[in-house]
């Protein structure tokens, strides 16, 4: 399966979230179709402790492997990649990960904008950007970059978000394609899983 899916993986999904987004993922992950045929990268704001508790927590909810990104590893479909605490996650044109511990962006490292902008350059119109709950403006500039390259924008329905600011900022400032509740996000992701 692995060999085959590298060739056929056309879509890539980047998911960003802050306050209240872990709860969303804990509901979405258990219903995702297995195996995952697209590339999936998650960037969550978190405390800068370098432990792997979050990856462990998420991995309890799905049989899809959940891994913190390591520098230079190839970006493969079928795995849920998680941005490590205290690093920005970038993607090179040869589809390998590159980590960066430079200045915080939007008071955040990892920053959602940084990963979204970088993924937009590499995946172009094959990219779907999903912005979840959060009390921060991170993610909006990233979604703009994805749109500019022809990708698809999704946000959580603000009324269903524990912190509505992040999706709201995006809806106000970009052309979001789908505004979905948690169940809607799950089924959109499963529709990508061809």
């Amino acid at each position: 399966m692995a060999e085959n899916s590298i060739i056929t993986a056309k879509k890539a999904v980047v998911i960003g979230g802050s306050t209240g987004s872990i709860d969303v993922l804990l509901q979405v992950l258990p219903v995702l179709s297995v195996p995952l045929t697209y590339i999936c990268i998650i960037v969550l704001h978190r405390r800068n402790t370098a432990d792997s508790t979050l990856a462990h927590l998420l991995s309890l909810k799905t049989t899809i492997p959940v891994r913190e990104v390591e520098d230079k590893e190839p970006v493969r479909p079928g795995i849920i990649y998680l941005a490590p605490a205290d690093y920005h996650v970038l993607i090179e044109r040869d589809r390998t990960f590159a980590l960066d511990d430079s200045e915080k962006v939007n008071y955040s490292r990892p920053s959602i904008d940084v990963t979204f902008e970088s993924a937009a350059e590499v995946f172009g119109p094959s990219l779907i950007g999903v912005l979840l709950s959060g009390a921060n403006a991170d993610g909006t500039a990233g979604l703009k970059a994805i749109k500019k390259k022809g990708g698809l924008l999704v946000t959580q329905l603000p009324a269903t978000a524990q912190a509505a600011m992040m999706p709201q900022q995006a809806i106000l400032n970009t052309q979001v394609d789908y505004i979905l509740d948690i169940q809607g996000i799950s089924s959109l992701l499963n529709n990508l899983n061809l």
Binding site: L90, I91, E92, R93, S102
Partner: peptide
């Protein structure tokens, strides 16, 4: 240098 982050710099 790693291209993606150098570009950001």
């Amino acid at each position: 240098y790693a291209r993606a982050s150098l570009k950001r710099r």
